[in-house]
């Protein structure tokens, strides 16, 4: 049945955007947890650990997100885990995002002068105390602008989850386009919704970056 593209469809698309946001939030939490571990492992004194994590980051950054999505979506069932687009997408985005957040945060951590580590160590603090009280609080300021930039990338990249059948904004757009035969109007609307979600974050990231430049 062919229907016209009406304001109801726009409402449906806006409603579908909440799944894009939910997937972004899930993926960001997974990426952040794993990414923090990776960032700290990358600056650890244990060389083999550093190499292992560097290799992981190299492999993940050297392969497209879409391939990760497919490998996990089709690979999980082989391990006996039932096929669930949400789980597959959450894992794939977390794996992918952790490699990028790990690198961003490593950069922020190593931007803190070595003398800060030494001053903290000289007061008898353990490695984890030095990280927790001295290094991480100082590197957060530096890490925020690129982390917000990463969030924008993540929102856009969740569109790829449409390819494994997860009904978020892009997939909803595909379905609506198929139903209305008005793909141009539909995908323009979809693009507008993405823009509304991403643009404020992009601007925020930029203004934070400018502030940081001035502060230096």
């Amino acid at each position: 049945m062919i229907r016209t593209f009406s304001s109801i469809d726009v409402m449906y698309l806006v409603a579908a955007a909440r799944w894009t946001l939910a997937l972004t939030a899930t993926a960001f939490c997974g990426s952040a947890l794993l990414g923090l571990v990776l960032a700290i492992a990358r600056i650890s004194p244990i060389a083999p650990l550093r190499w292992l994590v560097a290799a992981y980051i190299y492999v993940v950054q050297g392969t497209p997100l879409l391939v990760w999505l497919f490998v996990i979506f089709f690979g999980l069932p082989l391990l006996g885990v039932s096929v669930n687009p949400w789980l597959a997408a959450a894992i794939a985005f977390s794996v992918y995002g952790s490699a990028f957040l790990g690198e961003i945060w490593r950069g922020a951590l190593i931007s803190i002068a070595r003398t800060q580590w030494e001053a903290a160590a000289s007061l008898g603090m353990s490695m984890s105390q030095q990280l927790r009280y001295i290094i991480i609080p100082q590197s957060v300021r530096i890490a925020i602008p690129p982390t917000v930039g990463f969030l924008v990338q993540l929102i856009k990249n969740t569109s790829l989850a449409a390819t494994i059948g997860l009904v978020e904004l892009t997939r909803e757009g595909q379905l609506t386009a198929a139903g209305t035969y008005m793909p141009f109007a539909v995908f323009t609307t979809v693009a507008c919704i993405y823009f509304v979600m991403c643009f404020p974050l992009t601007q925020w990231s930029r203004s934070l970056e400018r502030k940081l430049d001035v502060a230096r």
Partner: peptide
């Protein structure tokens, strides 16, 4: 063994009080 460095190396994100009390509290 306390050490005082040439370049002070105070913790810039902490107040004077926090700089001084951090190690006594957590260590």
């Amino acid at each position: 063994v306390g050490i005082v460095f040439q370049s002070f190396n105070l913790f810039p994100h902490l107040s004077v009080c926090e700089n001084i009390t951090l190690a006594p509290r957590v260590v």
